[in-house]
Design a protein around this nucleic acid. Structure first.
Lengths: 323, 323
DNA sequence: CTGAAAGCGCTTACAG
DNA sequence: CTGAAAGCGCTTACAG
């Protein structure tokens, strides 16, 4: 079923059908009605491939997510998908996979589809290999990075002030009387590095001795060891909420009370924070705002031909029952 | 940059470039090499719109998710995306939104894109309105439903045996000595209805008095009221894990011990189950297997022209610390 | 207000 | 083994 078929039935030309289809002005109201009726009755559906070919626009954007398992990233992707779909752009959501240097393959896929814009979700994309790949494969497509920056003319960024948020969290604990606050970090992502930096800076400012733990495995083991080695600890900040879940379990098992004996803070203010018992206080990294800004920025770049911008969004503290 | 440009540089015709691009046989090895080099050097990227137009295939599949907030569904979508991408099919993941009767709009979007196949994730799609919409808009596209069935010739289904899983869970509690087991349900989805059915049937078989609670709001309130009204309760099953999180909190607050005083079971065996304290025992609804089967089935339908099939996958119990 | 024609960038018989 | 040509289903100047 093509517009020619519709044209035949409606007794007009394909051009006219196309005009009706696209709500172009300058068409006799009666003709328009007649064509519309045929369109409806036949259940006609435009072939977007053909349309994309002539319009040189796919009406699609690409969303590259660094890791599927990360609910935070998935949620960001969906927020962006929603925004664009309400504006007639469909989303191609693709999982880049763990290996950032393998980004060329998904990027080529997206390029072939001629996506009108691209958003990269996850700070791991702030990487030299990604920069080269972007430059080589999509030098002319507007790109926005969620929580990462790259110095490329077509690549904007919306950053979350992880450093400031973590500083604020540390200071908050200090203000509420804590004097021995540790930080437990997992992945060495650019985002996490900023968090750690904020923690260290706050410690210095406050005259607290920093206790930094790097764990690639289990938060429980890390917390247990930390607590064994530092009996005087009265606060722990985790680089992500789910780590704090394990931490709470260990603390509970050791017979310490939260927050009386020890305060616990997570990061991201994920849905999990509200589900834990006690409810986890967390650094809100503003996922929704971040995603929304990404969408707005990308839209702006797609329309105005791409002026690079870098925005930063402040974090806040979501205080609940753990500190 | 089109294949004509490549052809000119390589000193061949566009047909030859196309053949090289698609790894067609019957091309002089030298010519192939030469073209490949030019392809590489120029960073050529096929226009998939043009290709899709002539091939009458978009190399895309559509994935319709009923609700973004449901991590279970999102995870399913990603598992399917992964499967198809590794086979050269890109995924259009779309959030259908809460209102099932509004499914026509996303369906039309997907139809316009000429997706080669479609998967619907979420049992809420098992609905008369969805059935009509599918029939009207995509009568000829292979469709697979994840955990829902519809009686349409082009619509296959992979179901999870929610009923059996919940029966088994109820029986497990009974076997471990529980005699007063309640069930807390949230949404009235087809899937949840099966769960409730399984619970009721098990109660009958076991001679237990069923205590069924329907809550559309908070699991904590529901649990508190339930416990107040039924002091003898020694087990609760929740229709989804996150409800159990709230339940555990209330139980804890009331001074009851889990599982000694009361056993708690969730459903879906989500990542959350392992993060709660105590670790939540849960009915494993086999998300990964379900998604994988959906992908296989859809692939089969797309290749062999669509014989409808309905598969059911058994649940199992993931026993941890709560019962 | 409407239509005929060209062209978007590919693939694929058909010839040679 | 290779190329010229037609055609996939649209949109958009260009004429009228």
């Amino acid at each position: 079923m093509t517009i020619y078929d519709i044209a035949k039935v409606a007794g007009v030309s394909a051009s006219t059908v196309s005009r009706v289809l696209n709500d172009k002005p300058g068409i006799n109201a009666r003709t328009r009605e007649r064509v519309k009726r045929v369109l409806d009755e036949t259940g006609f559906s435009v072939n977007e491939s053909a349309r994309g070919l002539v319009e040189q626009s796919s009406r699609m954007i690409g969303i590259l997510v660094s890791d599927i398992r990360n609910q935070h990233h998935i949620s960001g992707a969906y927020l962006i998908e929603e925004y664009f779909r309400s504006r007639g752009q469909v989303s191609l959501i693709i999982n880049a996979g763990g290996d950032v240097s393998a980004i060329a393959s998904p990027l080529r896929t997206l390029a072939s589809r001629r996506v009108n814009g691209l958003v990269l979700i996850g700070s791991v994309f702030q990487d030299e290999a990604v920069s080269s790949a972007l430059q080589a494969i999509v030098p002319d497509i507007p790109v926005v990075m969620q929580n990462g920056v790259l110095d490329l003319p077509n690549v904007s960024a919306v950053l979350c002030d992880d450093r400031g948020g973590t500083m604020e969290a540390t200071m908050h604990l200090h203000q509420s009387g804590r004097r021995h606050v540790a930080y437990i970090n997992n992945n060495l992502t650019p985002s996490n590095n900023k968090k750690v930096g904020g923690y260290l800076e706050a410690c210095q400012e406050l005259g607290m001795e920093p206790v930094l733990v790097q764990t690639c495995s289990d938060a429980e083991d890390a917390t247990a060891q930390l607590l064994d080695a530092n009996p005087g600890l009265d606060g722990i900040i985790y680089s992500v909420d789910f780590l704090a879940a394990g931490g709470l379990r260990v603390i509970h098992k050791m017979g310490l009370r939260v927050p009386d004996d020890i305060a616990v803070l997570g990061t991201d203010d994920s849905p999990l924070a509200r589900l834990l018992d006690p409810r986890l206080s967390s650094i809100d990294t503003k996922l929704e705002q971040l995603s929304h800004e990404c969408a707005l920025l990308l839209e702006e770049m797609m329309e105005n031909g791409g002026v690079r911008k870098v925005k930063t969004i402040a974090c806040s503290l979501a205080l609940r029952e753990t500190g």
